[in-house]
């Protein structure tokens, strides 16, 4: 009986160890295979030039259009989402503290919105475009992605604001500040690292998503000069080039994947550094 118990525990511990290792290995495998296939084709030309005439048949050019498009789109939507999201997050934690049930209801709705696939946001963005009568453009893409990342941003900010001590609000109120002053001067400042984390997280989501911009942002080889023009994005460029029958073009997709991966890794690293500073007093796991 005792022996059997011991064997059972050891068996499962080995299994647990293996599955943990598997997850680590998979990440390594993903990084390795993308870099191995993409890095040899990554050149300065690739990231500094827009596609020229026969680019999609393997001729010269680069994916600067997609890189710039991604940056425009992500920056624009993160900025918009910030202006809508921050007030909501602050309102939930400063103005509505007395109505916890209501706030929890809002949290539930935000979590539900977070769970909705981006393709649905893309489809919704498309109907919105039709309704408002705008063409596929940077503007339409930004609006769609903004709607897509708002719940992510608010929830991340909300989690940061939740950690602010309750006494802070009472102390600030008793000093005669208005609630909006408290929101920005006290709570926002108190939680700045969490806020930056939230913004970076949303930016990363915006930069990496394809399905939401598929219908709305269009695709072009030129760098957009106004928000009414269509814009290419990096994930979309990877996706399109991969479906090409020409191997030269597919290799460039891998190279573009390396670029996108790099951007995401940098964001993730920044997030970790900032939130690491901020989580110093918190125990994870």
């Amino acid at each position: 009986m005792k022996k059997f118990l011991k064997a059972e525990e050891i068996f499962f511990r080995v299994l647990m160890f293996l599955s943990t290792t598997l997850i680590g290995t998979v990440l390594f495998l993903i990084v390795f295979s993308v870099i191995k296939n993409g890095l040899p084709y990554l050149s300065w030309e690739m990231i500094s030039e827009v596609p020229s005439g026969g680019y999609y048949f393997g001729k010269e050019g680069g994916i600067l259009n997609a890189i710039v498009g991604t940056v425009y789109l992500s920056l624009g939507s993160t900025l918009l989402a910030f202006f809508v999201g921050l007030p909501v997050a602050l309102m939930m934690n400063v103005h509505l503290v007395r109505y916890q049930r209501f706030v929890n209801g809002i949290r539930l709705i935000l979590d539900l919105l977070w769970g909705i696939p981006s393709i649905v946001y893309g489809a919704f963005g498309f109907t919105l475009m039709v309704y408002l009568g705008i063409r596929a453009s940077l503007l339409a893409g930004i609006i769609t992605v903004t709607i897509f990342i708002i719940p992510i941003m608010i929830r991340a900010m909300d989690e940061a604001l939740k950690t602010a001590p309750r006494g802070l609000l009472e102390a600030a109120l008793s000093l005669g500040s208005t609630r909006s002053e408290i929101s920005y001067r006290v709570f926002f400042k108190q939680c700045i690292p969490g806020m930056v984390t939230a913004i970076l997280l949303s930016f990363g989501r915006a930069a990496g998503d394809v399905a939401s911009v598929l219908f709305t942002a269009g695709f072009t080889d030129a760098i957009p000069t106004s928000i009414n023009q269509p814009a290419a994005t990096l994930p979309l460029a990877i996706f399109f080039q991969l479906s090409s029958p020409i191997s030269e073009v597919r290799h460039r997709a891998y190279a573009a994947a390396v670029v996108l991966f790099g951007i995401i890794l940098v964001i993730s690293l920044l997030t970790r550094i900032i939130s690491g500073k901020y989580k110093k007093n918190r125990i994870n796991f």
Binding site: I30, D209, V210, P235, I238, A253, I264
Partner: peptide, 8 residues
């Protein structure tokens, strides 16, 4: 990691 990279 963006889903397109998982796809790649």
């Amino acid at each position: 990691i963006p889903s397109v990279i998982y796809g790649v």
